[in-house]
Design a binder for these strands. Sequence first.
DNA 1: TTTGCATGTGAAGATCCTGTGACCGACCGG
DNA 2: CCGGTCGGTCACAGGATCTTCACATGCAAA
Lengths: 281, 281
Amino acid sequence: MSTSRSETLPGDGPTSQTAAPGQRTQSRLRLAVLDRDPGFMQVLSKRLDALGCEYRPLTTPLGIDSLVSMRLNALVLDLAILGPTGWGYLEQVCARLPGLAVVVCTGPSSVAQRVRGLRLGADAWVTKPCHPEELICVIEAAVRRHRRAEMPALDAAARFGEITIRPDLYQAYVNDVSLELTAREFEILHLLSGSDRVLRREEIYERVWGYAMAHGDRSVDVFVRKLRQKLRAGSPNWSYIHTHFGVGYRFAPDRENDVDAELDLLAGASAQGQLDSALAG
Amino acid sequence: MSTSRSETLPGDGPTSQTAAPGQRTQSRLRLAVLDRDPGFMQVLSKRLDALGCEYRPLTTPLGIDSLVSMRLNALVLDLAILGPTGWGYLEQVCARLPGLAVVVCTGPSSVAQRVRGLRLGADAWVTKPCHPEELICVIEAAVRRHRRAEMPALDAAARFGEITIRPDLYQAYVNDVSLELTAREFEILHLLSGSDRVLRREEIYERVWGYAMAHGDRSVDVFVRKLRQKLRAGSPNWSYIHTHFGVGYRFAPDRENDVDAELDLLAGASAQGQLDSALAG
DNA sequence: TTTGCATGTGAAGATCCTGTGACCGACCGG
DNA sequence: CCGGTCGGTCACAGGATCTTCACATGCAAA
C-alpha cells in the first residue's frame, strides 16, 4: 500500500477509476426456459416480455448443439421434467457451455439435491413456487457474473466526419493515423461524441473526472481547446466541438466552407496581399 | 473445493487442473463472513476449515478499502446485522469490488427485499437457517462464475511476431527456445495476447490475480517489465507490449524500425556518414 | 457602444504515471 | 541449514500529463 498516495487522495482515484466507459450498454437477455408448468410459463413470459427479453419456451430438452446455436445468455430449467437423466443433462450443458448462466427452478428438493445441482455447474437454484420477479433477478445476477468474466467487448468503433473513435484503443484516428489524444482528452471526446445534445461543463466534468466540478474550474475548457487543436491538426476544414455560450459544448461533425482551404488553394498565386487585407478586415 | 471437483467431474479433473488459464494459481478460496450468529459461524467455519478455505469472520462491516486489501474472492454477509444501512453498504461493496462474489445469507425476508439485494449487485441470496454445505456450494458457484473465464481454445498455440504462446505448456517460445517465463508472467502474457484492445491495469490484475487490485498496487507494472525484459532478450527488434499512458497495456507484435537493423543492412554500403548525420540531426 | 461575463489561449509549475533496480519474505529441494 | 527461485513491495527518477493562472478575445444585455 503506497502510503503517500493513500494519504494524499483518500477519495480520489486514478484517471479511470470511475470513468470506466465499458459495459454500459447491456444488450438484451436471451434465454430459454425448459418447463412444462403452463401457469409458471405464462406468468414468467409476461414479465420477460415486459423487460424486453428474448426468451424461448421449451418443453423438451434440446441437444447441446442446438443450445449452442441459440446463443443464449441463460437457461432456466426444471429438473423434475427430465427425470433421472436430468443430472447428466445439467452436467453436460454446464460443461459444454461455460458461458451460459444455468438456473435450476424446480419444486421442493432436498439439500443434497441442491448441492448436487450446484456442484454440477448450475449457477443458482430457485425453489418453486417462486415469485417471477425474484427468479428474473436471480437470472440477471448469474448473467451479470458471466458477462463480467468475459472480455468486456467495448463499444464498437464509430466514425464522425473524418475521425474514427476507437474505444478499444482509447484513441481517435484520421485515416488510421492516431491523433495522439491523452487518456483524458479521449474520454471527453468519447463522451461528447456519444451524445448529440449540449453537455454542460458540470456534466462533462462529473462524468469524466468522477466527482463534482469546483466552481470556476476551467479544466473542461482547457481540454476542449486541446482537443480542438488536435482535431484541427488531423482534420482541417471540419469542426467537431461547438460552443454554446453560457451552456456548454456539443459534438457535431460539420464540414466548414472555411477560409483556410481557400488560402491553401491561393497560396501559390500572387494574391497574398488581398488575403492579408481580407484577414485584417 | 478440490474435493467437490474430483467427485463431480471425473473426466474434467485434469483439464481444470493443468489447463487452467490463469487465476487458478490460488486454489484456496479466500472469503470473509460478516455475521453475529455464533452457532452459524461455528458450523460454517468447521466446514470451511475442512475445505481448506482461508476465511475471516467479521462482526462489524469493514470499510471498502479494508475489504480490498483482504484480497477476497467472496463475501458472505447477514444484512440483518447492518440494519437500514445494509443496503447502501451492499451497493457500495458490489460497485467497488465487481470481482467479488457477494452472498447475502440472512433470516426470513420478503420477495421485495431479496429482489432489492440481487438488484444491488449481490450474486445470491440464501435464507437462514440453511445447511452449511448448501451455502458453501452457492458461494463456490458465484466464485466459479467469476473465475471460469474465457479461452475455450486453451490448447491452441498461437504465434505473434516471433514468439509462440503455448497455453498447454504454460510457456512462450522463440524458435522452440523457451523464454523461461514464470507462471505469473505467462498468465499476463497469455491474457494480453488474447485481446487486441487496451487492458486497464485493474482488468489485468482482476483476471490474473482473481481479486480486486488495491489502489496504487504496482504489481502489474513490475510483471510487465519482467515480461518485456524476457521478450526483448528472446526477440529483439520486436516490441509486443505497448503502454497506453493513463490507461493500461495493449499487446500487439510490432517490428521496430530500429537502428541496428538498418545498420546491418547498410553495413556494406558507404552510407555510414549519412546515417550518422541523420542520427545526429 | 459600452459593460460585464463567458470563453479561447498560452505558458509555467504542480502533480501524476510509469520504468527501473533493489530488497524482502515465502517456498522448495538438497 | 542453505542457496535458489518466485512473487511482491518500495523508493527513486524521469517524463508525460494536468491544473492553474494571467491575459486576450468574443458574446450578449443594457
